[in-house]
Amino acid sequence: MIYSMTGYGRGEASTNGMRVSAEVRTLNSRFFDFSFRASRTLQNYENELRELCRGRIQRGKLALSLVELRTSDAPPTARLDTAAAQRLARELSQLAKDLGLDGGVTLEHLLHFPELLVQVEDPTLSELLLRLAREATDAALTDLCRMRREEGNVLAADMSARLDIIESAVADVSRIQGDVPMRAVEKLRERVKRLSLPQAYDEYRLEMELAILADRLDISEELVRLRGHIEAFRKTLQSPEGVAGKRLEFLLQEMHREANTVGSKTSSLEISHLGVRMREEIERLREQVQNIE
C-alpha cells in the first residue's frame, strides 16, 4: 500500500462551550516540512502538534491550521486590564486637548489597543485547549490519511499498468535477442573474409576478438536485472509499510540504467526501439513516484 503526498483533512473537537477546528494540507516534498497557523490562544502548542503530525506523516510539506471557537458558556481566556485602560484614556484625552481635537475618548478608541486584554493564566484551561487541539489535529490527520491512501491506490494502479508495458517490452527484447550476437559475429566474419588479408594473419586472435564482440552484444544479464527490479517495484507497491517513495525512486534509477545499457549494447534496431519505449514508461513512472510518500 502506498500513500500520495498530496491531500486535505479536517477535524474538530469540542467540550464545555469550546470548539477547536483543524485543517491539514499536504504537498510534495522530499522531506517533512511543517508550517503552523493558529488562533492566539493555540499558538503555544506548535511543538506538541508538530510531533503529533510527524508521527503520522513521514514525507511532504504539511500545513496545519487551527481555529478556536467559543460560546458564552466557555471559560474566559482573557480579561480587561482596567487600570491600563484608565491610564490610556487619560493619555488620549490629554493628547486630544494638546492638539486641539474635538470629541472625547470612546470605547471604540480603546478597542484598537489589543494589549489591554491580558491572557488569563489558568493551567487547567491550558491543558484543556491542548487536549482539544490534539484531538482535532488527530481527526484531521485521519481524514488526510484516508484521502492520501485513496489517491495512492489510484497511483498504484496506474504504475502497475506501466510496469506491464515495460515487462512486455522486456519479454519482446528477450525473444528478439536470442541469436542477435551470433548473427552480428557471423556478419562480421563474412566481411573479414572479403578483405584482402595477408595469408599469415592470426586466425586465433580474430576468433578471440569475435568472441569478445559477442559477449559485449549480450544483454541477457541486463534483462535479468530489469525483471528483478520490476518484481521488487511491484512488491513495494503492495508493501504494508506505506512509506515507499525513496525505495521506488532508487528502483527506477536502476531500471533506467539497465534500459539504457540494453539500448546501447544491441545492434538490433527493433530492440533499440523497445529500449526507447521502456525508458519512456520509466520516466512516466518517475513523475508519478514524485507524488508518493
Rank of each mutant, 00 (worst) to 15 (best):
D122C: 12
E127D: 06
L163D: 00
A157K: 13
D158M: 13
V180Q: 05
G103K: 12
A139M: 12
A169F: 12
D122I: 13
P123A: 01
G100V: 04
A156L: 07
S174K: 15
V105N: 02
L130F: 07
E127I: 11
D102N: 06
T142H: 15
L132D: 02
A136G: 03
D158R: 15
V180W: 11
D172N: 05
L125S: 03
L130H: 05
I165M: 08
L163A: 02
R131E: 05
D179G: 04
L130Q: 06
L132T: 03
Q177G: 03
H112R: 13
R175T: 12
E167G: 01
G178E: 10
A140M: 10
S174M: 04
H112W: 10
L117G: 02
P181H: 14
L110V: 15
A140T: 07
R134A: 02
L110H: 05
I165L: 11
D122F: 12
E135L: 09
E115R: 08
G152E: 01
R131N: 09
V154W: 15
L117S: 03
D98G: 04
Q119K: 14
R183P: 00
R134T: 14
H109Y: 11
L130I: 09
V173W: 01
E127V: 11
H109W: 12
R183I: 12
S126Y: 09
E115I: 14
R162G: 01
G100A: 00
E167Q: 10
P114R: 11
G103V: 06
A136V: 03
A140G: 01
V120I: 14
P114T: 02
L125Y: 07
L117A: 05
S174Y: 10
L111V: 14
R149L: 13
A169M: 09
R162D: 00
E150S: 01
L111M: 14
E121L: 12
V105G: 01
V105K: 10
E127K: 15
I176C: 00
S174L: 09
S126D: 05
L107Y: 15
D143Q: 10
